[in-house]
């Protein structure tokens, strides 16, 4: 039994069926709600919340005053954030034409190659005031798939994944920071440090980044109906692929080829426990 299954058993409220008392209270609340005749607030304005007295028994709804829906600012996990020109799944981080040029096998390029200079400039400019800005950065794990270049930027102990497309499009995110626990990996072991997705339909893509054991020569992934090769370098691996419905979740499988030619496959889900 894995951790997720055990955790499921430890649900504080495991029972799915309402008790008779809960059903009765549900009916009572519904009657109270439907009896409300407050006008609907205009979409452009939101009423101010007034404290509603706690119910001591049954459902008591405040008859006066408007009910507030105060939108809480998004909570960001401290030290981690994603940057994109428009950070929303509803807008294109990478244009459709760039995603259409994707290749299942990355082209490995050197950091000083002319073809990657625009992407490197975009990435470094975008994270100019980001983590580790006062340190000199190193660019590794460069790979090109069509018109899109991905890379890892390491500086001051911070590790940033950056994926850059044409015409100043792309995003970067912080995937590692000083003090992160980095357990020693078995020779062909893989870990996932980050996974996510952006866009929708023709502009949708998923990506993944993680660490690889010393004897990992190559990694092949099968995700979203595609089989493709990850970029492996310096003990880290990266991959990204187009998908119409990005979820950031790996549900397929990975095949690791070791330096001695041996192969092993693992379910992608096992890396995300």
């Amino acid at each position: 039994m894995n951790t997720t299954e055990l955790l499921r058993q430890l649900d504080f409220v495991p029972t799915a069926t309402l008790t008779a008392a809960e059903s009765a209270r549900s009916d009572e609340l519904l009657r109270s709600v439907l009896a409300d005749r407050e006008p609907e607030p205009a979409a452009a304005s939101r009423p101010t919340r007034q404290r509603v007295p706690f119910a001591t028994r049954g459902w008591v709804l405040a008859g006066s005053g408007a009910l507030a829906i105060a939108i809480v600012a998004t909570a960001l996990v401290a030290g981690h954030h994603a940057y994109a020109p428009t950070d929303s799944t509803a807008s294109a981080v990478l244009p459709a034409v760039a995603l259409a040029s994707w290749t299942s096998t990355p082209t490995s390029v050197a950091a000083d190659a002319a073809s990657v200079q625009p992407a490197e400039r975009w990435c470094l400019d975008s994270m100019q005031s980001g983590p580790g800005a006062s340190s000199v950065g190193a660019i590794t794990n460069l790979d090109q798939r069509g018109a899109v270049t991905s890379m890892l930027v390491t500086r001051g102990g911070y590790v940033m994944l950056c994926i850059a497309g044409p015409d100043s499009t792309g995003f970067w995110e912080l995937d590692g920071q000083p003090g992160d626990v980095q357990p020693t990996l078995a020779p062909t072991q893989l870990t996932v440090a980050s996974a996510g997705g952006h866009g929708d339909g023709a502009t949708g893509f998923d990506y993944v980044e993680g660490r690889a054991g010393a004897d990992v020569a190559s990694i092949s992934l099968t995700e979203s109906g595609r089989t493709f090769t990850a970029a492996v370098s310096n003990g880290r691996w990266t991959a990204w692929w187009p998908t119409a419905d990005p979820t950031g979740e790996l549900t397929g499988s990975l095949t690791v080829t070791a330096t001695d030619g041996s192969r092993s496959s693992v379910p992608a889900e096992s890396l995300q426990k």
């Binding site: 998004t74 799944t89 996510g196 979820t247």
Partner: peptide, 28 residues
Amino acid sequence: SVWEDLSTKDAAATLGCTRAAYAMRLTR
């Protein structure tokens, strides 16, 4: 993810963040 059994899309909508942000937070 575990007890509400929400998809990445729905969980992100619940928290008011992007799917990418939620997926990253879940991994961590």
